[in-house]
């Protein structure tokens, strides 16, 4: 069969289209497989007590009677605590930093801060983990803080905040950059001092986009595991408020990591259950954030 030149060209164009469509298909396969596996294997352990009980002792239900599946209560608790600590540090710093970059940062120094923030988002989270380990370790060595803070929920929260700060700052900046200049000018023309114009008018106009950026940063921190392996190496118990922030806690990602590596069937089963919970949580946040941005700013959004 012979084609003339034009037919050949058109045919080739179609072949490329199909090949590119195939690329999309290939990328969707692992996503589908991940969702399928975690629903299939996670759903079997999920019931009410899975959310209310602490992690079980490792055992094999086939050979040991009374082998419990337990739950992820202490993991959820640890995750919430980690989010609370890291958000308390990162959101004020990140949002104020973003305000600076957007409202005052139109100069070389602002440009270089922006550049460093972007580079910082690319630093591997395991490196952030050992950096914070070194920070707490050296401070304790100098006698400035007690040594038991080095491996604790506090140090892990600080590490997560280091990961969040550049993300929050950049998304906040980009959110504020979408606020029309006329809004600022209108406020300033009325004689409002700039700080007040920024905090009460610019920030409240861009509020939902700033919040969405913060939410995405929190989502990122929620799924982060590597710094926790270094700093917050798990606990089978609930958080003891009286024992303070220097106690280690568990968390959803850490539990999954820990249980996967074990050979105990009840832990492996719980790992899938926790995975399903984490996936639903992360996809939920991501979908909600993207829908919120899309409604407000059309396709693409801020992030």
């Amino acid at each position: 069969m012979k084609f003339d030149r034009d037919t050949r060209r058109k045919l080739f164009s179609h072949v490329v289209s199909v090949a590119c469509l195939l690329c999309v298909g290939i990328a969707i396969i692992p996503l589908g497989s991940i969702l399928y596996e975690s629903v299939l294997k996670g759903i079997v352990v999920i019931n009410w007590s899975f959310f209310t009980e602490n992690q079980p002792l490792p055992c094999n239900p086939q050979f040991q009677s009374g082998c419990q599946f337990g739950g992820i209560f202490n993991s959820i608790e640890g995750t919430l605590l980690l989010i609370g600590i890291s958000a308390a540090i990162a959101l004020p710093l990140g949002i104020l930093g973003g305000i600076y970059l957007s409202e005052f940062g139109r100069h070389r120094f602002g440009d270089s801060l922006r550049f460093f923030a972007d580079v910082l988002t690319g630093v591997p989270s395991i490196v952030v983990g050992i950096v914070v380990f070194s920070l707490f370790f050296l401070l304790a060595q100098q006698g400035l803080i007690p040594t038991n803070y080095t491996l604790s929920v506090l140090s892990a929260g600080v590490a997560l905040s280091f990961i969040m700060i550049p993300i929050v700052a950049r998304t906040c900046e980009e959110a504020l950059a979408l606020v029309p200049n006329s809004t600022r000018e209108a406020a300033l023309a009325l004689g409002v001092p700039k700080w007040k114009a920024v905090t009460s008018i610019v920030l409240s106009t861009g509020r939902s986009a700033v919040m969405t950026g913060a939410l995405l940063a929190i989502a990122r921190a929620t799924g982060e595991t590597a710094p926790l392996i270094i700093l917050d190496a798990g606990s089978q118990f609930s958080f003891q408020p009286s024992a303070g922030l220097h106690q280690p806690t568990s968390s959803l990602p850490f539990s999954i990591y820990n249980w996967v590596q074990s050979a105990y069937p009840n832990w492996i089963a719980d790992a899938w259950g926790a995975t399903l919970v984490l996936v639903v949580l992360m996809l939920g946040i991501s979908v909600a954030a993207r829908l919120a941005l899309r409604n407000k700013y059309g396709e693409g959004g801020v992030v």
Binding site: G223, T225, Q261
Partner: peptide
């Protein structure tokens, strides 16, 4: 375009520990 790019973006929302458990056990 919309549905496909949405699905690819979802891939970015999966935490690495989930890739880990899927990788190790599947």
């Amino acid at each position: 375009r919309g549905p496909f790019s949405f699905v690819i973006e979802l891939l970015a929302a999966i935490p690495s520990v989930v890739f880990g458990i899927w990788g190790a056990l599947f």
